[in-house]
């Protein structure tokens, strides 16, 4: 590679400082003692401050059920379903997965890759919604500033979700 091309390439990298950071979302699924417990369906998505959806970050549902029967209850995540779910084709690579057992779990995403491709710096909400068979439903929103600055934002659910922590690391 010639020096001029190399310089141009380096300048391009320098001009997109948001391109390197990580987004990590920690979600606590509370351990509930009920007679019949099923792990909740959980959706995590990115939305603008006006609550229009930008991208799915994770959808955990019963992917193993025969004949895609697990998709029947996706609409129980009502807010997600209305904002973005009903327009989403599942399964989706890098987004959908099996339900997760109670406890701490997380997702890790890189800027400009996968679901965050094309997401420009600015104000957003990370939204987490859980809906459980024979249980309730809860939505938690965490406002964030997507950009090169490191930050941590926290929120907490009160029934179907526990602590939610969002961290952005350059």
């Amino acid at each position: 590679m010639k020096l001029a091309q190399l310089t141009a390439a380096l300048l391009t990298l320098a001009a997109t400082p948001a391109a390197a950071q990580n987004l990590r979302v920690d979600v606590e699924i509370p351990r509930l003692s009920t007679a019949e417990y099923h792990s909740p369906y959980v959706a995590i998505w990115l939305e603008r401050p006006d609550q229009t959806a930008v991208a799915n970050l994770a959808v955990w549902y019963d992917i193993a059920a025969r004949n895609n029967e697990g998709q029947t209850w996706l609409s129980d995540m009502r807010t997600w379903w209305r904002k973005i779910g009903r327009e989403t084709t599942l399964p989706a690579d890098g987004v959908s997965g099996a339900t997760r057992a109670p406890g701490a779990t997380h997702i890790n995403l890189r800027a400009n890759q996968g679901p965050l491709r094309g997401v420009t710096p600015g104000a957003y909400n990370i939204v987490v919604e859980a809906a459980r068979e024979l249980g309730g439903r809860e939505v938690v929103r965490v406002p964030i500033q997507w950009g090169p600055q490191a930050q941590t934002a926290n929120a907490s659910g009160s029934s179907e979700l526990g602590a939610i922590s969002v961290s952005i690391n350059p």
């Binding site: 998709q71 209850w73 009502r78 379903w81 209305r82 009903r86």
Partner: peptide, 8 residues
């Protein structure tokens, strides 16, 4: 009134 899935 609001449904998801295939065999519905």
């Amino acid at each position: 009134t609001v449904l998801s899935g295939e065999d519905v």
